[in-house]
């Protein structure tokens, strides 16, 4: 799609140009975290894979909730966003399989908890979320309005954040 900027696993993207669409395609247990400053017309989208970094030198901070959230906030601030105006939308964190041992279980839920903890710490409100469950999702964020749309596998697109109506929907 023209003007679409995909965030692959462990990456984040930032858009300031009108018409740019930021996307996370095929989120399973990963979390797609959209951060928006609708006044400054800046949006960022992180494709977070895991709750916590292992410590030490991490070549890809975008993979881990504890590093990705503050790093994306800092990047948005460099692009003109104000921290107190940032709003968050979360999509993903599904559990598709019962797999893994001990802490490996339900990575999706742990990802969501870790991302929300970082947002709380930074005092960024979560305006809408479509998380949990057992289905994969894709999400798209349109710059500069900050419209956030997601879709489940084989489902129709659902608007989570509609800037024109400024209505918010909480999905299950």
């Amino acid at each position: 799609m023209e003007g679409e900027l995909p965030a692959r696993m462990g990456e984040w993207v930032v858009g300031t140009e009108a018409g740019t669409v930021l996307s996370c395609i095929g989120l399973g247990s990963c979390i797609g975290l959209a951060l928006l400053d609708r006044r400054a017309k800046v949006a960022g989208l992180a494709h977070v894979m895991l709750p916590e970094s292992p410590g030490g030198i991490t070549p890809q901070p975008g993979k881990f909730a504890d590093l990705a959230v503050p790093a994306l906030v800092a990047e948005l601030q460099r692009q003109g966003a104000m921290k107190h105006r940032l709003e968050a939308v979360l999509v993903g964190g599904a559990q598709m399989f019962a797999l893994g041992r001990g802490s490996g279980q339900d990575i999706g839920a742990r990802n969501e908890v870790a991302v929300r903890a970082q947002l709380d710490r930074l005092r960024i409100p979560v305006r809408a979320a479509a998380t949990g469950g057992g289905k994969g999702r894709s999400m798209r964020v349109t710059v500069p309005d900050g419209e956030v749309v997601f879709r489940e596998a084989a489902g129709r697109p659902i608007t989570l954040l509609d800037p024109s109506a400024d209505t918010l929907r909480m999905a299950a």
Partner: peptide, 24 residues
């Protein structure tokens, strides 16, 4: 076995992340 019908990316990412300590 566990059977799902879902997006390719979501299926693979979930398996890769849940099964590996090596996340690189």
């Amino acid at each position: 076995p566990q059977v799902v019908h879902d997006m390719l990316g979501a299926i693979l990412a979930s398996v890769l992340l849940a099964s590996g300590e090596d996340t690189d």
